[in-house]
Amino acid sequence: MANRHRGEVEAVLGGRRFTLCLTLGALAELEAAFAADNLPALCARLAEGAPSTRDLIRILAAGIRGGGTALTDAEVAALPAAGELEACMRAAVALLAATFGGGEDAANP
């Protein structure tokens, strides 16, 4: 079960239930993936508001790994998307809100 006080979000993706969390390591992964030199630059990049599918995979994969499940970006990319794109987007938004602030409701989509 996700602990919103630790920035965790629970999501069902590809028919599997995951706990997602952006740990310091996951944030460092995202800085590297988005070529951001620091955390404010990462926040600015994520706030652009037009994520690609590749961005979505990176965010979800980092969150899944931060939540304790060892999946590669390729394994996350291979999760079935049919009928699940909205759930993927909601999970990513909730994860970012739980990490960077956005109220209690944002952590529980």
Rank of each mutant, 00 (worst) to 15 (best):
A2K: 15
A2W: 13
N3K: 15
H5C: 12
H5L: 15
G7W: 09
G7A: 10
E8T: 12
V9Y: 03
E10L: 12
A11L: 13
A11E: 06
V12R: 14
G14I: 11
G14D: 06
G15T: 10
G15W: 09
R16E: 11
F18S: 14
F18H: 14
L22T: 01
L24V: 14
L24N: 13
G25Q: 14
A26T: 13
L27K: 07
L30E: 10
L30D: 09
E31F: 07
A32R: 11
A33F: 04
A33K: 10
A33Y: 02
A33S: 13
F34P: 08
A35V: 11
A35Y: 10
N38F: 15
N38H: 10
N38R: 14
A41V: 12
A41R: 10
A41E: 08
L42T: 14
L42A: 12
L42M: 14
A44N: 03
A44Y: 01
R45W: 09
R45D: 02
R45L: 06
L46K: 10
L46E: 09
E48A: 00
E48G: 03
E48P: 02
G49F: 05
A50I: 13
P51G: 04
S52R: 05
D55R: 07
L56A: 09
R58C: 03
R58Y: 01
R58M: 00
R58F: 01
I59T: 03
I59R: 07
L60V: 06
G63I: 01
G63K: 07
I64G: 01
I64L: 02
R65T: 01
R65W: 08
G66Y: 02
G66R: 03
T69N: 02
T69W: 00
L71V: 00
A74H: 03
E75D: 12
E75F: 05
E75T: 08
E75V: 05
A77R: 14
A77D: 15
L79D: 06
P80R: 12
P80D: 12
A81R: 09
A82W: 03
A82N: 10
G83Q: 09
E84Q: 08
E84D: 07
E84V: 04
E84L: 04
L85Y: 12
M89C: 11
R90W: 03
A91K: 03
A91C: 10
A91Y: 01
A92E: 03
A92P: 00
L95E: 13
L96H: 01
A97L: 08
F100A: 04
F100M: 06
F100R: 00
G101L: 11
G102A: 11
G102T: 09
G103S: 07
E104W: 15
D105S: 05
A106G: 08
A106R: 13
N108S: 13
P109K: 12
P109V: 15
